[in-house]
């Protein structure tokens, strides 16, 4: 009964690079429509964790399930899971040779085999969702960082994924540009998109997340709702970290 409720299950993920163990057994479950934020010092494996979920990085140990299907050890079927798991990168990684709308539609055409007309309509719809429809024919180099990131969110959305992974989506952006991206993400969260977000934006985490997971040294050491974070003494480490890195006091 309970198992079917989770759309994504992550169990005991380990990952080492050489002698350095970046992830030392991370587990959590995600319900549909939930937003989880991962916070913590840099180099604690948050990004690696996200990349393990869609197997851009293959974990050494542990399992991941999407809708009760195992994502780990999927072999060539991994491409199917990646269609179902969207990802947004810190540096956008828009395809530099394609216009905004082509960026959004290319996977629809090449991966989902949608016909070009339908794909274009879908792409325009998604660009509109992120407020970028007017920029459809511009190339990545002609967009500001915030605009580029919104296009890359549209690119992930277009695949109608079950969950979207955000890997520090605003870390490469100025504060003003950060705001426009955060707005889009907040909107997505309120519309019921399932999201896993690695971020340093405490404002977003506290207002939009259902749960905050504080990671340190490759482990989730504290987790709970934003109100727990603010009120519950179990969040001492996390609060200390936030105070230290963000000057965040309430």
């Amino acid at each position: 009964m309970e198992t079917t409720e989770y759309i994504l299950k992550v169990k005991d993920i380990h990952k080492s690079y050489g002698n350095v163990e970046v992830l030392k057994g991370v587990s959590f479950n995600v319900k549909k429509g939930e937003t989880k934020c991962f916070i913590g010092p840099s180099g604690t494996g948050k990004s690696t964790l996200l990349r393990c979920i869609n197997q851009l990085t293959v974990p050494d140990q542990g399992q991941i399930w999407l809708h009760d299907e195992e994502v780990t050890h999927a072999g060539p079927r991994i491409n199917y899971f990646r269609q179902r798991i969207g990802m947004v990168f810190q540096n956008f990684y828009l395809f530099d040779h394609l216009t905004a709308v082509r960026n959004v539609e290319i996977a629809l055409i090449k991966v989902l085999r949608m016909n070009p007309k339908e794909a274009r309509e879908k792409a325009m719809y998604e660009l509109n969702q992120v407020g970028m429809a007017d920029w459809a024919d511009h190339y990545p180099a002609e967009l500001s960082g915030g605009q580029a990131q919104r296009v890359s969110i549209a690119r992930a959305l277009a695949m109608d994924p079950d969950v979207i992974l955000f890997d520090e989506p605003t870390s490469a952006l100025d504060p003003e540009l950060t705001r426009e991206v955060i707005e889009v993400m907040r909107n997505l969260a309120s519309l019921g998109m399932t999201m896993l977000v690695v971020t340093h934006e405490m404002g977003f985490a506290c207002s939009a997340a259902n749960e905050i997971l504080f990671m340190e040294n490759g482990r989730v050491i504290e987790q709970g709702s934003p109100s727990d974070l603010l009120n519950n003494p179990q969040f001492e480490r996390c609060k200390a970290f936030i105070g230290q890195y963000h000057g965040f006091h309430e």
């Binding site: 199917y80 969207g86 990802m87 991966v111 890359s152």
Partner: peptide, 18 residues
């Protein structure tokens, strides 16, 4: 060409060939 281009393509479910 930066590695991110390949990473982004694979993250959308494209095969290596595509």
């Amino acid at each position: 060409i930066s590695e991110g281009q390949m990473t982004a393509a694979r993250s959308l479910g494209m095969s290596r060939f595509t």
